[in-house]
Design a protein around this nucleic acid. Structure first.
Length: 279
DNA sequence: ACGCCCACCTGGAGGC
DNA sequence: TGCCTCCAGGTGGGCG
């Protein structure tokens, strides 16, 4: 579900409730996520102070006192919710709640994930860059390292489609199925084009459009299709601004185009594009 | 090494 | 109402 803008919105929403706080209580329930929840989850977290929240790709990284970091991923349907809790009222998990913690400031974090593709893991803070979940991630698309020449070089010789390449987290870290379709539409690049064959000039445009669509989505608090919500339960609203995603058969929004958005399947995932505007 | 397929899960929507 | 199929913001293991 959540791509970079949704994960970043969650991180920004968590910061005021978590940074500097001490965890007074924590608990986990038995069902396994993408990875098993660490057995010592509650023991490791109880009494520990939260220092700082970061993001890498679609992972939220929480640095704690004592050199411990928590790695969180929302998978397709994960939610992290924060709410004030009443003193002396034990947490009763709802269906698909997998773990929680409470802070001295009176807030309770709950991780909820029906499909269980998300995960929580621990790492030593020092070793985070080398952690197996993190070490192979590519460039952050909102960083200066993401630029035309660098992307052109990363795509050189690739025979897969540009769509598949943009989804590859080892190349660009944080794009998902929605924003890849949206960025390719804005850059006028056909999603079936071979990644290595796109000219530098068009790659430069693509870089700018990836940035633009991520920034705009972030401003809108992300896109809520089904499961994604902010930490206070509110919806994002960038879904109202999609040009192509989930708009098959409807009119292309480009002035004077008059064509219709088409849906195709690439690598078993939907792609939406305008056959007239994208070549 | 690379590209592709599939599995991992649950639930909602739509067809009959 | 029910049952069946298809579909969904992600990821990585295994295969050719």
């Amino acid at each position: 579900m959540p791509e970079l803008p949704e994960v970043e919105t969650v991180r920004l929403g968590l910061i005021p409730h978590l940074e500097g706080q001490v965890i007074t209580k924590a608990g986990a329930f038995s069902r396994k996520l993408r990875l098993p929840i660490p057995e010592d989850f509650a023991k490791k977290l109880t009494g520990r102070r939260i220092i700082q929240l970061h993001r890498r790709a679609k992972y939220i990284l929480i640095d704690m006192a004592g050199g411990l970091s928590v790695i969180l991923h929302l998978g397709m349907s994960g939610q992290i919710l924060i709410s004030r809790f009443e003193a002396n009222t034990p947490f009763k998990p709802a269906k698909h709640d997998h773990f929680f913690w409470e802070t001295a400031g009176g807030m309770r974090l709950v991780y909820h994930d029906p499909r269980r593709f998300g995960l929580v893991a621990f790492s030593k803070t020092d070793n985070l860059p080398l952690h197996p979940l993190i070490k192979n991630l590519g460039v952050e698309p909102l960083s200066n390292a993401f630029n035309g020449p660098a992307l052109k070089a990363a795509l050189a010789g690739k025979t897969c489609t540009i769509k598949a390449a943009l989804l590859d987290q080892r190349i660009i870290a944080g794009l998902g199925n929605i924003y890849v379709s949206e960025a390719l539409y804005r850059a006028h690049i056909h999603p079936t084009r071979k990644a290595g064959s796109v000219s530098l000039a068009r790659i430069e445009t693509l870089v700018a459009m990836v940035r633009a669509v991520l920034r705009e989505a972030l401003k809108s608090g992300g896109s809520s299709l089904k499961d994604y919500v902010r930490v206070n339960g509110e919806l994002g609203y960038f879904q109202h601004h999609f040009d192509v995603y989930d708009r098959a058969g409807r009119g292309c929004r480009s002035r004077g185009c008059g064509g219709a958005v088409r849906r195709i399947v690439q690598n078993a995932r939907s792609t939406f594009y305008c056959p007239r505007c994208q070549t």
